[in-house]
């Protein structure tokens, strides 16, 4: 689905202080190329390689230059830009659209936004917002929790105990990000950020109880808006398949949006304190991230010892 000027405006209303200067009803314009362009050269009459697919940003320099032109030249230069179907114009420092710009924007049905921010700061903030909006993302079936700084996605078939495990984690002082449906977004080459679907955020469904509002019951500290995905824990009914490697020497990973994420499969057995095991898995992952692989270190120690004692056959 293409991202529209409206998406950008709505996401940036608070963080970027965006307001609609004109063209409220043309916000549905799709933004094909997600970048900002400062159209100084175009305003000077040079349109070769004009990045018309980008949002056009009028900073103080562009704005002052535009104002220095006669109304007829303004119209001529701006029309060349509008004719190329630019997606939107943003004016910084709370300057207002000139009458010529306003008239053309109405005619070509192209929205003009403005912000109080200064241009440099706006570029930084808007770029971050654009990265956020355009990051590859996916919805997964799973409950997301944060355990001592480690983001853990708990997966498993319905009824296996994902939500119950999360509930116990909350009681142990950890936080919930999302129950049952988690949105994953790749925000950089190495980082995946997990969050909840907007409508169900802060809620959980517990079998036998129904829907609960987590912060009301457990306090605001029990919820977080988002967390990086560091570990996937898969809950599974015991099969011989899971017994593949019990030593933890050959860690498994799963590709998520192109990034390999450590994966642990936990057999669910009656009476097993799953939340506690998930907690340990998270801590062990943290230890690994810090460069300590317990399984590997013990094995190396053991192999040294065994080699010393080894006998000729």
């Amino acid at each position: 689905m293409p991202i529209t000027v409206k998406d950008f405006y709505e996401a940036g209303r608070e963080t970027l202080g965006l307001e609609v200067e004109s063209g409220e009803d043309s916000l549905d314009q799709a933004i094909v190329e997600w970048a900002l362009n400062r159209p100084g050269l175009a305003l000077a009459g040079f349109y070769h390689h004009f990045a018309h697919r980008r949002v056009q940003l009028f900073g103080l320099a562009e704005y002052s230059y535009l104002k220095s032109l006669s109304p007829s030249v303004q119209t001529e230069r701006l029309e060349q830009m509008f004719k190329r179907r630019i997606p939107a114009i943003v004016i910084t420092r709370n300057r207002r659209a000139t009458p010529e710009m306003r008239a053309l924007a109405m005619h070509y049905r192209i929205p003009v936004l403005r912000t109080q921010m200064i241009t440099g700061k706006f570029i930084n903030e808007a770029t971050m917002l654009i990265t956020h909006l355009t990051a590859p993302s996916m919805r997964v079936h799973g409950t997301m929790a944060e355990i001592m700084g480690i983001g853990v996605l708990i997966e498993g078939e319905p009824g296996i105990g994902k939500s119950e495990t999360a509930l116990t984690l909350i009681e142990r002082g950890h936080s919930l990000i999302a129950d049952d449906i988690t949105i994953l977004r790749r925000t950089s080459e190495k980082v995946i950020i997990a969050s909840a679907a907007e409508v169900t955020r802060y809620h959980m469904e517990i079998r036998g109880i129904g829907i609960i509002h987590v912060p009301s019951l457990f306090g605001v500290a029990a919820m977080r808006r988002e967390a990086a995905l560091d570990l996937i824990v898969r809950l599974q009914r015991p099969t011989s398949e899971i017994e593949r490697d019990r030593s933890g020497l050959t860690p498994q990973t799963r590709e998520v949006l192109g990034i390999p994420i450590p994966l642990i499969t936990l057999p669910v057995a009656a009476g097993r304190d799953l939340a506690h095991v998930v907690e340990v898995a998270a801590m062990n992952q943290k230890l690994k991230d810090l460069g300590h692989d317990a399984a590997k270190e013990l094995d190396e120690k053991l192999m040294r010892l065994l080699l010393e004692r080894k006998q000729k056959l």
């Binding site: 399984a295 192999m303 080699l307 080894k310």
Partner: peptide, 8 residues
Amino acid sequence: NKFGIHAR
């Protein structure tokens, strides 16, 4: 085996 009964 050379390394004996280690973890693997």
